[in-house]
């Protein structure tokens, strides 16, 4: 059976620290756009930590919610792409072929979660920052759409290693960069086809809900609600 990768985000554990945000930059060669471009709304954060204020002083609350590509089973970003650059893989991932993308940005408009980011300019790395670039991840050129891949390079590497060692994958063995960096373990990644995996068990939790589920995207990321104090 092919894997079906999914993620659980425990909002009761997430502290909003943003380690996942920087970890994703470090792993996935996401460019730093700089202040001028950031001011124009071109900053790229494949995973972002949304924060919402609720109430007024002194009865004020604040909620954090990490949002990354939800790897929708019915992904609106896929059918609209004229070149198949945004497509579905056998493992249920929403994958992006940068070479095929011609930059219509239609997928980004169609994505209800606004998790797709566009290369408005060619990326630059001031030397020697380029030496940090991860050789397992393509650098995206101008005019190309990009987004969270569930760290596909790590998935492939681990799958290949598992195959070479002729064994099956252990739950928790494979961690995307954001998951690996999350100290309170708010992010859990794994195989939804394995009913015993931690992510499967958490997906069945009563606290679980899916973001914008009513849009019909069938996301594979499940959010475990912040638990109110008993």
């Amino acid at each position: 059976m092919p894997h079906r990768w999914g993620m659980a985000v425990d909002l009761d554990r997430c502290t909003g620290c943003e380690a996942c945000v920087v970890a994703c930059h470090a792993e996935n060669n996401i460019k730093t756009v700089g202040d001028a471009q950031a001011a124009r709304g071109r900053a790229m954060h494949w995973i972002r930590v949304e924060r919402y204020w609720d109430g007024e002083f002194p009865d004020v609350r604040l909620k954090f919610r990490p949002v990354l590509c939800q790897q929708c089973d019915a992904a609106p970003c896929e059918p609209v792409c004229p070149t198949f650059a945004s497509h579905h893989t056998d493992e249920g991932l929403n994958a992006q072929i940068y070479n095929r993308c011609i930059g219509t940005r239609y997928c980004a408009n169609a994505c209800p979660y606004n998790v797709r980011f566009f290369n408005f300019f060619n990326p630059t790395w001031e030397k020697p920052l380029h030496l940090q670039l991860n050789p397992d991840v393509s650098v995206r050129e101008v005019g190309v759409m990009e987004k969270c891949t569930f760290c596909i390079q790590r998935i492939k590497a681990t799958e290949q290693q598992v195959e070479a060692e002729n064994r099956s994958l252990k739950d928790g063995e494979l961690k995307p960069a954001c998951v690996q960096s999350c100290a309170p373990m708010a992010l859990v990644f794994g195989d939804l086809n394995d009913p015993e995996s931690q992510v499967s068990r958490l997906s069945r939790s009563g606290r679980g809900e899916r973001l914008l589920e009513d849009v019909g995207t069938q996301p594979k990321v499940v959010y475990l609600k912040h638990q109110a104090q008993a």
Binding site: P79, V80, F84, C101, I102, G103, T104, R105, F118
Partner: peptide, 30 residues
């Protein structure tokens, strides 16, 4: 004109590509 990579505009069209790649007929842009 609005493409990120306008020089590849012809990928929007069905043409007999030697890579046997076709546009996505589900896309309203096609």
């Amino acid at each position: 004109v609005h493409l990120g990579r306008p020089w590849l505009f012809f990928w929007l069209m069905p043409y007999p590509s030697e890579r046997e790649i076709w546009p996505n007929f589900r896309s309203p842009l096609v």
